[in-house]
């Protein structure tokens, strides 16, 4: 074997290696560009949703819309009763859910690691992701059958959806608290309930607040569990045992109707509910972030 053939062989293998490196680099670049493209696409989707809502919804947003009740077809109506209905039902549902959710969260975080605790945690997790329409069916069979369609039934359905979220965030934040702090409380002779209420809960306040805000933002946009519980109402009444409408329900009823005015109202309602939900979400998340930063300090 002479020198030249050896050198050409070496050269060949070097070229091959170089090819391989180039192929790997190319593959790497393709995947990176793909990933960046997908991220851009998702942002585009979000902005397209917001843009469509703004374009179609803003034109119907006026003082008249906010101050008048829904009206029969042909008469100009507003969104006052759905707005009130959303506030009323979401508010009461969250008031129902807060004590239950926080107490159950305390149970999961502070009552050891018994079988009962893991069972409740497991079931709460299952409920958190359970299809919301099943909750509607459940409330129909236990409340609507006996009391009729009512805001009360809707409130119960929404509360069931909110409880697991509050449970989860309460447990998570309580678990972050160093045990030395509650031990200090115990060392001073405080009973468990005092330590939990006066030591742990004040520290966990921020996290629990975040959970509550996230729960509000989730149930405020729900329509599926309300379809056959609070049903919808073209009028307003403060009676909790009468049917009541809400923004998501009015969107569902109006969006695919043939009446242009109703479609316009559906867009405005969609804009209102989306903005409210997104703002709540942003506030909740920034609250959480601030809390974490304080903890790190």
């Amino acid at each position: 074997m002479d020198l030249s053939s050896a050198s050409s062989q070496l050269n060949n293998s070097w070229v091959q290696k170089n090819n391989l490196v180039q192929r790997r680099k190319l593959k790497n670049q393709l995947f990176i560009i793909g990933a960046l493209g997908i991220t851009g696409l998702l942002l585009l989707v979000l902005f397209s949703i917001l843009a469509i809502l703004l374009i179609n919804g803003l034109s119907g947003l006026s003082l008249f819309t906010l101050s008048h009740m829904t009206a029969p077809q042909g008469i100009k109506g507003g969104l006052l009763n759905p707005i009130l209905g959303s506030l009323f039902q979401t508010g009461l549902a969250i008031f129902l859910a807060i004590p239950i959710g926080v107490l159950a969260g305390i149970f999961l975080a502070e009552y050891g690691n018994t079988r009962m605790v893991s069972l409740v945690r497991f079931i709460s997790d299952m409920l958190m992701s359970a299809p919301s329409i099943l909750v509607g069916l459940f409330i129909y069979t236990v409340i609507v059958i006996y009391l009729g369609y009512s805001a009360f039934a809707g409130i119960c359905a929404l509360a069931i959806l909110a409880i697991p979220l509050i449970v989860r965030t309460t447990e998570d934040t309580l678990r972050l608290i160093p045990t030395t702090i509650s031990e200090a409380g115990f060392a001073l002779g405080a009973p468990k309930w005092k330590v939990i209420i006066f030591v742990c809960l004040p520290i966990a306040k921020g996290g629990i607040m975040t959970g509550i805000l996230l729960a509000i933002s989730r149930i405020a946009g729900e329509a599926a569990p309300l379809l056959f519980t609070s049903l919808g109402n073209s009028d307003w009444s403060w009676n909790i045992f009468a049917p009541m409408t809400s923004l998501p329900l009015i969107i569902y009823q109006y969006a695919d109707s043939a009446d242009d005015q109703w479609v316009q109202l559906a867009w405005t309602a969609a804009l209102l509910i989306t903005m409210a939900v997104l703002c709540l979400n942003i506030v909740a998340k920034s609250y959480l972030e601030k809390g974490l930063k304080n903890k790190r300090k």
Binding site: I49, A270, T274
Partner: peptide, 20 residues
């Protein structure tokens, strides 16, 4: 967090977006 906002948009809004 901006992409996570997609998870917060109510499902009925996705319905409208899809429909129109």
């Amino acid at each position: 967090p901006i992409i996570q906002l997609l998870a917060a948009v109510p499902s009925i809004i996705f319905g409208m977006w899809g429909f129109f």
